[in-house]
């Protein structure tokens, strides 16, 4: 996983976020790089959604 994708995963482990909130947290990143990293995150089984449509990743057990 790329360092940017890892940072996105860490963001989502910290708290649920809308996609745009993730984008705002990494505005310095070229859009194409962001989309590639997001593609990696989307591949994770653990990625889910909450009732407000935010993305969530549950913290690892234990």
């Amino acid at each position: 996983m790329s360092p940017l994708a890892e940072r996105l995963v860490a963001d989502l482990r910290a708290r649920p976020r809308h996609f745009a909130e993730l984008v705002e947290a990494h505005t310095g990143v070229a859009w194409r790089d962001f989309l590639r990293a997001w593609g990696e995150v989307r591949g994770l089984e653990a990625l889910g959604r909450d009732e407000q449509g935010r993305y969530v990743i549950a913290a690892p057990a234990g």
């Binding site: 809308h18 745009a20 984008v23 959604r49």
Partner: peptide, 17 residues
């Protein structure tokens, strides 16, 4: 590679571009 297309992010609560 869809990232090679300038996909727009439109609204604050959209699930993606």
């Amino acid at each position: 590679d869809l990232t090679a297309i300038p996909l727009p992010l439109m609204h604050v609560k959209d699930g993606g571009p």
